[in-house]
Amino acid sequence: MYALLFEKPIVELEKKLEELRHVSADQALDVSGEIERIQKKIEQSRREIYENLTPWQKVQVSRHPMRPYPLDHIRRMTTGFLELHGDRDYADDRAIIGGFAMLDGRSVMIIGTQKGRDTKSNLECNFGCPYPEGYRKALRLMKLAAKFKMPIITLVDTPGAFPGIESEERHIAEAIAVNLREMFTLPVPFISVITGEGGSGGALGMAVCNRLLIMEHAYYSVISPEGCAAILWKDRAYANQAADALRLTAKDLIQFKLADEVVPEPVGGAHTNYDAAAEALKQKILKHLAALDKLSPQQLLEDRYRKFRAMGPFKEPEPESRRRFRRKKS
């Protein structure tokens, strides 16, 4: 199995465990005590490593080739997923998938970005980097959901919108901008989850929501750590430092009130247990959906507007009028 560099201690323990099992099978020795001891150690080591991941290590976990992608979650969380295709204009972008699904007995519109597991599927979905038609398809499906009063759930795991000639020729910036504006006008509950990579405008273009959730080892950033390092340090190798500086982890986003809740992952990351990861995700979505059900369509729009309106700290001198008022009073 694919292991990340910092998982080396776990890998070594696992190797030892394997050897021990061979020994016990070959020589009919009872090493069950020893096996149990190593298993405990693996568990402990995994917990320690995953509780203390640096931001850059989290970025690597979020990009783990075995990380569950939106379709993996959708298949586990919902039933009757009925995929809908195309933007009715240019193409069906495979980097964004979406359709109707049943979630805990109710119909929802669920839309996600999608990466591939091998070369073939990655070519098909462009490594999870949508083209303009992907965003236009997503908006078409969101509007469809609004028309039939279905909640919208978006699952985001993308390095970013695709930076290519065709993207520019078909106006990727405009496609994202229109999504940003239009998502403010959909009077249904809207929940977004960053499940892996939250790559800049390409992620935001699907996530103007009432509740933003982020998985424990996912990240959400204005620029990739490598991109930031290339600009500031003139060297992509400084991605580690850039990841620290950007404050892009789930914990940071909660601290800054940019995300509403973290979805816990199984020990060792979502890739170690797809079912448990999807179940945790489902429970959080249901919880927030229940809260949003209490809001009227107008309140949902106002809630969404207020949410983003409040983002971004700055300093402001006291307005002249208020200062004068205070002087008079004293």
């Binding site: 204005v222 940019l258 309106r309 983002m311 971004g312």
Partner: peptide, 14 residues
């Protein structure tokens, strides 16, 4: 300004 800056895109569009 990290993600705060990204969110300005949504804010202005709203």
């Amino acid at each position: 300004e990290g993600l705060f800056s990204l969110m300005q895109m949504a804010k202005t569009s709203g």
